[in-house]
Design a protein around this nucleic acid. Sequence first.
RNA 1: UCCCGGGUAGCUCAGCCGGCAGAGCGGGUGGCUGUUAACCACUUAGUCGGGGGUUCGAAUCCCUCCCCGGGAGCCA
Length: 462
Amino acid sequence: MRTARINKILAEGKAGDEITVYGWVKTKRVSKGFAFIVLSDGSSQDTLQLVVSEGTTAHEQLDKCNTGSAVRSHGILKESPGKGQKYELDAYELEVIGTSDPDKYPLQKKGHTLEFLREIGHLRPRSNTFGAVFRIRNLISDSIHRFLQDRGFLWVHTPIITSSDCEGAGDLFSVATSVKDSHKTDVPGGITYSDDFFGRRAYLTVSGQLEAEFLAMALSDVYTFGPTFRAENSNTSRHLSEFWMVEPEMAFADIDDIIALAEDLLRYLFSTVAAKAGKEIDFLYKYYKGISLDDIRSLSERSFTRISYSDAIGELAASKKEFEFPAHWGNDLQSEHERYLTEIVFKGPLIVTDYPINIKPFYMRANDDGKTVAAMDVLVPGVGEIIGGSQREERLDILRNRMVEAGVSEVNLQWYLDLRRYGSAPHAGFGLGLERLVQYLTGMHNIRDVIPCPRAPGTIKM
RNA sequence: UCCCGGGUAGCUCAGCCGGCAGAGCGGGUGGCUGUUAACCACUUAGUCGGGGGUUCGAAUCCCUCCCCGGGAGCCA
């Protein structure tokens, strides 16, 4: 089955070309004597219009050729006299490969709500919206690899099943095989982890950071890119139980190095999306009013604003706006604070640095003031935090003190402390939430609409 | 987990101070010689989220459970 996808036909085809095309029927408009069929194959935002004239064998197939059916067509490409498309296919062959009962097929010609499409997750990629979102998601993922590979970073594959339970990034999913052993009752669920598969408790990873650190302390510049899992009972439009994260980790690097890396990476991604996904962005902006192509392009061309946490608190305190929770040094920024800073004050991505030591994890490097750590978050309008990172504490004694204060046991982290015992060096990294970035660039308000199979509390279809 | 809002035809919704179950879209049939979410006519379509209660009578009022959405917290 030799195929030419519609994006290629439209980009490289010439009037007069004889072509075969495959796709799914989006709409069919039948008039006396001829019919129009709009065909989509997901290869781009564009569709191909088939013109089926009476008297052809193609015309005899029209009755079976309903919305949603899979078809093959063969004909001559020609310039379209109608508006809305440059080319159309003068189709003289039409074969319905897979029929679709129009009475039952859930997707109509008309637009659907995102809530309804979420209920038919297996069919929603056929919609214009989800086609656009998943193409952009792919472009971003590919571009992340390209950017980091070009800079000499090694993609390292850190484990999905892990024994680390102390990263402080929320509740973990347990991995077990013996849950049927309900008479053994020393842990909730009735199993004894020492008798279970790994001989000790295991979890799905909440972050590849700690493992990326030991790889960076040998290979210098590395990154992880894979799924991570949080068992938090959070029900929001910005949280998933399973999401994808990119975590670069650099040795012999400080906080400024990774701030620069984060900004360069984001600006590269903005410019790539603007250059290669213009039609998708235009479509999504038209319907969801998230971010326009012009805005993405201009974001890629200017440097991000950078502000310390302390100055951000000052900015919030000086504002005339009434917050539900007044900004107070020592407390984490609330959603309303992040929104105010990114949407009202700075109107774009914002890098906030040097957070109070008490609200950040033990591994972040203590600053000389004793009150803050070398941390950085990148906040964007509408979505909030898309990147969180820090310089890591490389000084053994200070790290051990932080662990004691945080109540983190050393027992299972001797390997982590070894990195500080043998050839310790300044290093730093960050985590980029892929779905949140895709949200920002697509304007999807709900994070469940930027991943094919969203997982959330009580939600695991397919 | 908490606070709001919602659940009525395949979809989007109206009806809600109790009294015959509605519209638009979609689907079907017919018409139309260039459509673009085509257009015109006709037609099809219901466990009013589940359970319980009040009442002569409940989509409508009360209780309860479930599900969905928005916001908050946690974070990416």
